[in-house]
Design a protein around this nucleic acid. Sequence first.
DNA 1: CTTCTTGGTTCAATCACTGAACCTAGGGTG
DNA 2: CACCCTAGGTTCAGTGATTGAACCAAGAAG
Lengths: 175, 175
Amino acid sequence: MALGKDYATQECSIARALEIVGERWTLLVVRDALYGVRRYNDFLVHLGVPRAVLSARLKTLTEEGILEKRRYQESPPRDEYVLTERGIALWPALRALGLWGREHFTERPLRRFQHVNCGTELGPYGECPACGTFVPAADVLSVPGEGLDPDPADPVSRALLKPKRLLEPIEIEHG
Amino acid sequence: MALGKDYATQECSIARALEIVGERWTLLVVRDALYGVRRYNDFLVHLGVPRAVLSARLKTLTEEGILEKRRYQESPPRDEYVLTERGIALWPALRALGLWGREHFTERPLRRFQHVNCGTELGPYGECPACGTFVPAADVLSVPGEGLDPDPADPVSRALLKPKRLLEPIEIEHG
DNA sequence: CTTCTTGGTTCAATCACTGAACCTAGGGTG
DNA sequence: CACCCTAGGTTCAGTGATTGAACCAAGAAG
């Protein structure tokens, strides 16, 4: 979003939410974090976003308590960005938005989501039709769909080709 | 969203969705349309958005099949913008986003949503806990919450103070 | 004939995004 | 020690989107 990211006159929690996550690239950063991306460089190559924008988004997301920056090694010092509870709570919204995009603007599903306990594909509201419960993000298994490029260029997309739980960190193959 | 509203490298239905509705103000226009706002001037005063931006958003939303422009009187010729099926299908995403905003960034609820059949307040996923079904937008009753300004300046906000079904056109009091 | 309403368009100023270049701290190699 | 590499940034000029104010037009109303 550009120029005055706030919606001053709007007395509305949707507007409040959009002030936080409504800027360009922000929700895609959160999506990647749900998919298990954690490191600056992985966000960078996977999103294709300018570094300045990525830095700014990671900063505000951290300040708003959606991501947490934490040290994962001391020498050399390196940090990673991990979703907080507040960030994980965006999963239903992203799920709903993604489903809308798929149903109205994409031919074949790019990614399917299953309940990890029973393998059942999630219903439209993120519920498990078999178990009759809403599936928390950590119990969602993401499996690649037919529409997905089977041989992507960047290592992050390649790592995301394996079935994998949400939030579980991705494993990059080097070489 | 600014500058290149597309996410070319993103093979993802969330990115597809955001290309359509991710620009600044767009989701708030859809929200207002769900609340029953239909006319150019009503969007204008309620959103406080520049006219040029509103015109642009209404145009793309119409082109993308989310709104439909239709004549509501012949003399003088006047058009209104009404949500299509595709637009109404954004309700779960807006509901999820609004709930996230409310739970994490707003003290008191600004608006409550009930199942019109039984009066039960909707659950977090837009379901009716009493009936056990997902409530379509047209069957959602919007009632003002404690956090809402009881005497707003613009006539659209005043019209939205009454309990009202989603999608049902607002009634502006003149004078 | 003048004014009001509705629904816009135009335009300069401002601000955000982009892409490329540069920077820094810490390793690793010869 | 000299050199290159990686991860994680910052800086900056150019471009594009947003803003707010002004202007426009068609029909109705007085």
